[in-house]
Each structure stands twice: as C-alpha cells, then as structure tokens.
Lab assay of single mutants.
Amino acid sequence: SFNTVDEWLEAIKMGQYKESFANAGFTSFDVVSQMMMEDILRVGVTLAGHQKKILNSIQVMRAQMN
C-alpha cells in the first residue's frame, strides 16, 4: 500500500500525472478512490492505455479499502 497519491502514481508508472492530480484536488486516497472516467479525463489523462491503467488501479484500491 502507498502513503501518498504521488507514490501510488509512481508505482503504477503514471508519475507524469502527479501535478495534474494535485492541481485538480485529487490528493488523498479517499478522493482518488471515488474517481470515475470523467475525473480521469478532467485531470488530463487522454491516452486510453493510461486511463485503463489508472482506472484498474483505482478499482483495486477500492477493493482494498472495504
């Protein structure tokens, strides 16, 4: 498990989005775990492969939080 959203993004090789997530207010796992595709688009993730990777990881995160 990760301590910060930045660490999580690095771990899934999506570190290039750290600033975008932070600027959009997605700075805690409570918020990130609620993200939908529209949120991912809003933070500027436009590549389908990256969207899928982030969404898949969020689903895993949700499962671990319950």
Rank of each mutant, 00 (worst) to 15 (best):
T46Y: 10
M14Y: 03
Q34F: 07
F26M: 10
E7G: 08
W8A: 01
F21I: 02
L55Y: 12
D6A: 12
G25H: 05
K52N: 13
T27K: 08
E10K: 06
N66H: 11
E10T: 09
M61K: 02
E19S: 10
V32W: 02
I58A: 03
K52V: 12
F29T: 05
M65V: 07
I54K: 01
A24E: 10
T4A: 07
M61H: 04
K13Y: 14
F26A: 06
N66T: 12
Y17C: 02
E38A: 12
I40K: 00
Y17L: 03
S28A: 08
E38K: 11
I54R: 00
I54L: 13
Q64P: 07
F26V: 13
E38S: 11
N3A: 15
F26G: 02
R42Y: 12
T27N: 11
Q64F: 08
M35R: 00
G25Y: 04
M36D: 15
T27G: 06
M36L: 11
A11I: 08
F21G: 00
V31L: 15
L47K: 14
N66I: 15
F2K: 06
N23E: 13
Q51G: 05
A24D: 04
S28L: 04
L9Y: 02
M65H: 07
Q34P: 04
I58T: 04
V60I: 14
M61I: 10
A11E: 12
Q64M: 11
Y17K: 01
F29Y: 04
D6N: 11
A63R: 06
I40N: 00
I40R: 00
N3K: 14
M37S: 06
M35C: 04
F2S: 06
R62H: 09
A22S: 12
Y17M: 02
F29A: 03
S33Y: 09
K18I: 10
S57K: 06
L55C: 07
N56T: 13
D39I: 02
W8R: 00
T27R: 10
I40V: 10
V31H: 09
S1Q: 15
N56F: 08
K53H: 15
L41N: 06
D6Y: 08
G44A: 03
D30C: 11
Q34T: 14
G25W: 03
F21C: 02
F29W: 07
G15W: 05
